[in-house]
Design a protein around this nucleic acid. Structure first.
Length: 449
RNA sequence: UCCUGAGUAGCUCAGUUGGUUAGAGCAUCUGACUGUUAAUCAGAGGGUCGUAGGUUCAAGUCCUACCUCAGGAGCCA
């Protein structure tokens, strides 16, 4: 083990002599003084090299270092308000490691295509660094939330024999002599089996959608967390979603304030926004949401304001489009839960409300100015109803036999939801595009690096 | 799948009604400066203008096709 301290721990090491190891993030100089910005993975630290304070080899080393070259620095930790992070190293010695030549990502701006082409290096820059640390915090918070409440982590298979919802396009691969296998587009059906075995479970894994989506909110490979609970109805589902979202967002606020400040240039905007994710969320029936949208678009159209060329006016019975979700949520600071969607626009496994047979016991959590981050429902637990749904959706009963068994043997009311991890990262970090919310995004036109 | 836009130096871009040797900043190299914050200042090198064809005395600029990418919609998390 090579001995060294980490930049994130410097606050406890003021006035002590330390050794740090890392890469050169940037360099500035003035006369006989050199400022080296060291990056060690935990943060950035300015290292000050004064000509009259070091030997000649160290002073020359400071000049030779290029961006992303490796070096080890020894010196005294000083508190200062002149340097990033609030601490700097007054250097006594530098050792140079591997030298980088012509590092492709410069401190100047780059286009998104170029950055994505160099994603493996771009990860070292401060914005991806901060974003992916927020993502890490969310992942831990998600697991802690469920673990603390007695949920079992229940992994669903990634290679599956059929489509969960039948409609979406699936990635296909050969599976020995069994014919075709498909990459999972949802762990939910398997999660239902888990809920009947363990009471409450959550599936958390990668999800694959072969849809030719081309928007800033879609990835073809993304991570989804899907809790499923036996003896829970739609009301309980909404409460769980609220508690869950509130908990994980709060954890990010506790653990990643520094990263959020990097992402909003210190304005505090991201923290202020996340702090408004308070329980309870605004809840509304689909009919109420439809009324709000009708009024909203009527006023917009009457005002003569120019609408985008792809704009389509919402009609009662439609699912919400991108413009509708933004319009609906922009009136609130906190997330909005819309429930009782028309059954016709929802998946076959969602239970219908006995009091409103044309509505599904479904709910979506919509985030302010953003849109859907959670979709969930109470599931159809009646065998005959489920068989009818399969027929209506023209799905073959044979491939769902094991799923139907869950209704034949001890069927109970149960519910769950799915949360798109990258969508939440995107909203919290206010990213322009979801591709920055995952280390190596897979989109319609990108599978490299 | 549909609609819109863009491809000029390693990167980000400018380039007028078609007109002499295609420009700037950053990056790289040389030099100056003892507290810099995308440091600054002086200098140097660096180009098949996405590809193919066409119009013209003359094309980075106009026309056609293709390729690639980006933005928007739908599908959804």
């Amino acid at each position: 083990m090579l001995q060294r301290e980490y930049i994130q721990d410097l606050k406890n090491l003021v006035d002590q002599e330390v050794t740090l190891r890392g890469w050169l993030y940037n360099k500035r100089s003035s006369g006989k003084i050199r400022f080296l910005i060291l990056r060690d993975g935990t943060g950035l630290c300015q290292c000050v090299v004064m000509k009259n304070a070091v030997d000649e080899a160290t002073y020359n080393a400071a000049d030779e270092l290029t961006q992303e070259s490796v070096f080890t620095v020894t010196g005294k930790v000083q508190a200062t308000d002149k340097a990033i992070g609030g601490y700097e190293i007054f250097v006594s010695k530098i050792e140079v490691g591997q030298k980088s030549e012509e590092y492709p990502i410069t401190p100047k701006e780059h286009g998104i295509e170029y950055l994505m082409e160099h994603r493996h290096l771009w990860l070292r820059s401060s914005r991806p660094w901060a974003t992916l640390r927020v993502r890490d915090s969310l992942i831990h918070a998600i697991r802690d939330f469920f673990h603390d409440r007695g949920f079992i982590c229940f992994d669903a298979p990634i290679l599956t024999p059929n489509a969960a919802e039948g409609t979406s396009t699936l990635f296909e691969t050969d599976y020995f002599d069994e014919g075709k296998a498909y990459l999972s587009q949802s762990g939910q059906l398997y999660g239902e089996a888990g809920a009947m075995a363990f009471g409450k479970i959550y599936v958390f894994g990668p999800t694959f959608r072969a849809e030719r989506s081309k928007t800033k909110r879609h990835l073809n490979e993304f991570w989804m967390v899907e809790p499923e609970v036996a003896f829970m109805d739609l009301e309980g589902d909404m409460e769980l979603a609220e508690d869950f979202v509130h908990y994980i967002v709060t954890r990010v606020l506790e653990e990643r304030k520094n990263e959020l400040a990097i992402l909003d240039d210190g304005s505090g905007r991201l923290v202020a926004r996340a702090e408004k994710v308070l329980k309870p969320f605004h809840r509304m029936h689909y009919d109420e949401a439809a009324k709000i949208l009708d009024k909203y678009w009527d006023e917009k159209l009457a005002s003569g304001e120019e609408l985008p060329p792809t704009f389509k006016r919402f009609q009662y019975g439609d699912d919400f489009g991108a413009y509708d979700e933004v319009a609906l949520t922009s009136q609130y600071d906190a997330p909005v839960i819309v429930h009782h969607y028309p059954a016709a626009v929802k998946a076959f496994y969602m239970k219908r409300d006995p009091n409103e047979p044309d509505k599904a016991l479904a709910m979506d959590v919509l985030f302010p100015e953003f849109g859907e981050i959670i979709g969930g429902s109470q599931r159809e637990d009646d065998l005959n109803e489920l068989l009818k749904r399969l027929e209506e959706h023209q799905l073959p009963q044979s491939i769902f036999e094991w799923f139907l068994d869950l209704r034949r043997f001890g069927s109970v009311p149960h519910a769950g939801f799915g949360l798109g991890l990258e969508r939440l990262v995107m909203w919290i970090c206010e990213l322009e595009h979801i591709r920055e919310a995952i280390p190596f995004p897979r989109t319609l036109t990108r599978i490299w690096p």
